[in-house]
Simulated scan of single mutants.
Amino acid sequence: MTEHAALVAGDPIPTERVNSFLGSAPLRGAGLYQFAAPPRGATSHNEPAPARRQTEPPSVARQRRRWATQVIVTDELARRACAARGLKPPPEVSPAKPLTLAESDVADLGSIVAAALAHSQAARALLAALESEQTVPETAVQDYYARNQDRFLTPDALRRGVTPFDGAAPEDLLPYDAVREGISRELRKAAGRRAFFGWLDQARGTVVYSHGHEHPADPSHPDHEHRH
């Protein structure tokens, strides 16, 4: 049996790290990534289902292992990136409770990256560093304010059913100066996430996966699915 799930820049990632992560993310439901992407309206998975784990189709178990490998590889890559940048994230600790993901994060980031950020302090530290490096031009903030006026209607305008499409008056909108900081923060966050995705895509180029640990969407294995 292969003792490593992947090689990162030639260094082995032990399968035990993948097994440990799988053990910290109990299943809920029988879906492929149910423990990664909660059902609509749910925000956590804290109901282990050992019976389902025993009876799940082999193809589902294989895909789950591949998915978990991606999370662990992302953690390893982030640790190395933090070290290269001189960042020192807090030491990793064994999870005291099942992995918890926000449904919005899964929708926005994909379940692999969302789970990696929930699991890995190094990934969170790297994302924070990338976000802090982003510069948002004033023109971008102004443009966002102008194009998304439905987000900046006053409470009174909302009560009256005013919409920008009907021609909102200036007094129906929150003043630009009052919302400018929040818009800038949101745009910086989005830019930081794009930078994180760009980093991850490039960093994965150093990874060689063992058989049974390929990316879930890798077309070279028969069970592949384009799901994240």
Rank of each mutant, 00 (worst) to 15 (best):
D108F: 03
G86K: 07
V73K: 08
V93L: 14
L99C: 06
P90S: 05
A96G: 15
S104A: 15
P89R: 09
D105S: 12
R85T: 08
T100V: 12
A96E: 13
E76D: 05
D75I: 04
R80Y: 02
A78G: 05
S104I: 10
L77G: 04
V73L: 05
P91I: 00
S94I: 11
R80V: 02
A81G: 00
S94Y: 08
V106H: 08
C82D: 00
L99W: 07
D75Q: 11
A83D: 11
V106R: 12
G86N: 07
P91T: 05
T100M: 10
A84H: 06
S94Q: 14
A107W: 07
E76P: 01
E103H: 14
P98H: 09
R79A: 05
E103N: 13
A107M: 07
S104Q: 14
K97V: 12
P91A: 13
R80I: 02
P95W: 04
C82N: 00
A83H: 09
L87P: 01
P90D: 02
L99N: 06
A78C: 10
S94W: 06
A96D: 10
V106T: 14
P90H: 02
A78P: 01
R80E: 12
D108A: 15
T74S: 13
P95C: 07
L87A: 01
P98L: 07
E103I: 11
K88A: 15
S104G: 06
D108G: 01
L99K: 09
P90Y: 02
R85S: 12
V106S: 12
G86D: 07
A84D: 13
A102L: 15
T74I: 08
L101P: 02
L99T: 10
K88F: 03
A81M: 06
L101M: 11
A78K: 05
V93D: 07
P90K: 03
L99A: 09
V93R: 15
R85D: 11
V73A: 08
P95E: 01
G86W: 05
